[in-house]
Structures are given as structure tokens and as C-alpha cells.
Amino acid sequence: MDVEIVAPCCGSTCACTAQTVIVGTDLNTLTYDSGLCVNCEMCLAVCPHGVFEAGPRAVQLAHPECCMECGACERNCPTGAVQVDSGVGCAAAMIRAALTGSKEATCGPSDGACCG
């Protein structure tokens, strides 16, 4: 599991002493930019797998490997500090999408797809 630091903060003329670092792993599409975090802790409240932890100034990315890409964190982050590619992670739906040539896997009777 590699923690990839994508971009350091420029920090040239602003008074901000915190470094902006975008972190993620190659296990999933979750990325977190601590520089954008306003410490509202919504991601902490909504994550079902304890990926985030409270921190002194900003939230910390404690267990990115546990992320299941549900998207709750990104959706409830008011500043866009957390980003993830969420979508249907069901093998049957993906196979169906691949076979029917459609792009996105979906669920539900209205789409004529899998789960009711």
C-alpha cells in the first residue's frame, strides 16, 4: 500500500502554516486534501468503516485501506477536501453492464437491472 503525496502546498504569500497535502492510496480512489479541511468532522460521522480520525486542526486519514468507496464522505464534505469515485460495486451489476454495453452499472427494477 503506497501513500502517494501528489502536491505540496505552495504557501508563498499566505499566512497559512499548514501544508496542503493530498493523500490517497492505490487501493481505491479515495483522496484527501487536508488544506481544504475545515474540521466540521462530517466525514467522521458518516464513514461506516472508520477511515477518518479526529485531528487537532484537521481530520486525519487514518485507515484509507478500509474505504469501500460509498461516497458518503465526499457528499457531506462542504469544501471538497475528500474525493472518491463511488458507484455500484456489485459484480453482477458490472457484468451486466459489460454484457449489455452500457456504461454505468445500476440497480433497480426500473432499469431492468438486478436487485429489486
Binding site: 487501493l27 468507496e69 463511488s86 460495486g89 456489485c90 459484480a91 453482477a92 458490472m94 457484468i95
Partner: peptide
């Protein structure tokens, strides 16, 4: 077993995609 990933709440889409490309 692969299909059971859709019934769990801890497999990620990226992980399932990888699994499928490896094992199908």
C-alpha cells in the same frame, strides 16, 4: 463468492473491478 461482494458493505468498487479482471 465473487457475486457475494455485492451483498457486503466493505468491498469497494475498485476492489471488485480488480477482482473481476483477475478472476473472471
Amino acid at each position: 463468492a465473487l457475486n457475494f461482494t455485492g451483498s457486503t458493505t466493505f468491498t469497494s468498487r475498485t476492489g471488485v473491478r480488480r477482482e473481476m479482471s483477475t478472476y473472471i
